[in-house]
Simulated assay, not measured.
Amino acid sequence: MTNAAVLSPRGAARLASGHPWVYRSDTLNLPDTPGIHAVQDVRGRPLGWALVNARSEISVRLLSADPAVRADEAFLRARLDAALDYRARLNPDADAYRLVHGEGDGLPGLVVDRYGPYAVVQNGTAALEPHLGALVQHLAERLGLQGVLARHEGKVRALEGLETGIDELYGRVPDRLEVQEAGARGPVRYLVEPRTGQKTGAFLDQRVNRALLGAYARGAALDVFSYHGSFGLHLAPGAAHVELIDASGAALARAEENMRLNGHTNVTYTEANAFDRLRDLESAGQRFDTISLDPPAFAKRAKDLPNAYRAYKELNLRCLKLLPVGGVMATTSCSFHVSDSDFHGMLADAAADARVRMRVLHRGTQAPDHPERLGVPETRYLKFTLLERVE
């Protein structure tokens, strides 16, 4: 098989274990041109078909372990259809949710988020790039979309040898649009700017967790690292008052717009460093009955873990000190390198140092439209824990 990706024994063992990625260091021969190529082991035994790019550190991303399949554009459309069928079965109570979640849907490197009649696409693999137009056309026709935007951004594309930029691939996509998601006390509306917002325009992976926390909202509430108020919008209907904390004045301005959109007037906005503000609130003797703590990823690389642990622990410790008995706190980490055991061990240490006893009400992860693939830990990155302070 002359144009095949040939793997070392270690690379072949990695695929056999169920993980779809093989690093360049575990390959023996790679085709010069990125694309869909056959994969084989050092003895010539066929291992399936993969997206292959010799330039990328992750040189092989398995599409199918069946050497007999025809891994062509029709195959990719069928994978896309399967992802869309799965979302149809989920029937999300929202008009903004994820349609394709990369490896979780068997389409490595491809992310597609829906915002009402529009979609935003991010592709991180050079091998898939030539097929992107056809996949977008199929997506738009099947769902009746009015526009599809490509957010070609980030280091991943550069590592794959791809250009960056923003491009309309189908129809027209407005600079700003309004979407909604289900809340514990009714629909929650918010604004999205698909060209400039974080990720594809909004953080959709916490959708279910936001609604869960909203059911517990009461009294004085605090939303730390609020960004556009995603958790705060779910706290406001049940709380007497909500304080949003974020270091970005622009993010808080958008949060205020979102609150007005939902008719909430019981909110204040604090532009501050979260660590400093939490210390000030503790010094002032403030207490909050409901707290959301949703910090950014502190451990983007494995070597960041020690510093990330200290940052997560300090934030959680200070929030725990603000909770009265009976108070509820949602705390999260979106750092893949922070494991479930690391995260919950950190929470136990923070509670011990804060001298509080906490009951675990719920442990969760990202919404089911961001599916986890068994054996691929990178597809499970979000940790969400709901805690209640007890006597």
Rank of each mutant, 00 (worst) to 15 (best):
T2N: 13
V6I: 15
A12M: 06
A12Y: 00
L15I: 13
T27I: 06
L28K: 09
L28F: 00
L30I: 08
Q40Y: 03
D41L: 04
V42E: 15
G48F: 10
N53I: 06
A54H: 14
E57N: 14
E57I: 08
I58Q: 11
L62C: 07
L62W: 10
A71H: 10
F75M: 04
A82I: 01
L84T: 03
R89I: 03
R89Y: 00
N91G: 10
P92Q: 03
A96N: 07
R98P: 01
L99G: 05
V100T: 05
H101L: 02
L107G: 10
L107Q: 09
P108L: 02
L110I: 10
V112F: 02
D113N: 03
Y118D: 02
A119H: 05
V120Q: 06
N123F: 11
A126C: 07
A126M: 05
E129P: 10
A140R: 09
A140I: 04
L145C: 06
L145E: 10
V148Y: 01
L149W: 05
R151W: 07
G154K: 10
R157K: 09
A158I: 14
L169D: 01
L169N: 02
Y170E: 04
G171C: 11
V173Q: 11
R176L: 12
E178M: 11
A184D: 03
G186H: 09
V188W: 13
V192A: 07
T196I: 02
T200D: 04
T200N: 08
G201N: 07
R207G: 05
R210S: 08
A211M: 12
A211D: 01
L213M: 08
Y216K: 09
R218T: 13
R218H: 14
A220C: 00
A221E: 01
L222Y: 01
V224F: 10
V224A: 11
F225D: 03
F225H: 11
H228P: 00
P237L: 09
V242M: 06
I245F: 00
A247N: 13
L252Y: 12
A253C: 01
R254A: 13
N258F: 06
M259N: 12
R260T: 06
R260N: 13
N262M: 08
T268Q: 12
A272S: 15
R277Y: 13
L278F: 02
D280Q: 15
S283N: 14
F288N: 04
F288P: 03
F288L: 08
F288G: 06
D289C: 01
L293F: 11
D294A: 12
D294W: 10
P295E: 05
A297F: 03
D304L: 11
P306T: 06
N307V: 12
Y309E: 11
Y309K: 13
Y309G: 06
R310Q: 13
R310V: 12
A311K: 05
L315G: 15
L317Q: 14
L317N: 01
R318Y: 00
L322K: 03
P324T: 01
V328T: 14
T331R: 02
T332L: 14
V338M: 14
S341L: 12
L347V: 13
A348Q: 12
D349K: 05
R355A: 15
R355N: 12
R359F: 09
L361I: 08
R363D: 00
Q366G: 03
Q366I: 02
D369E: 04
H370P: 03
G375F: 11
P377R: 05
E378D: 07
T379I: 10
R380G: 11
Y381D: 04
F384E: 04
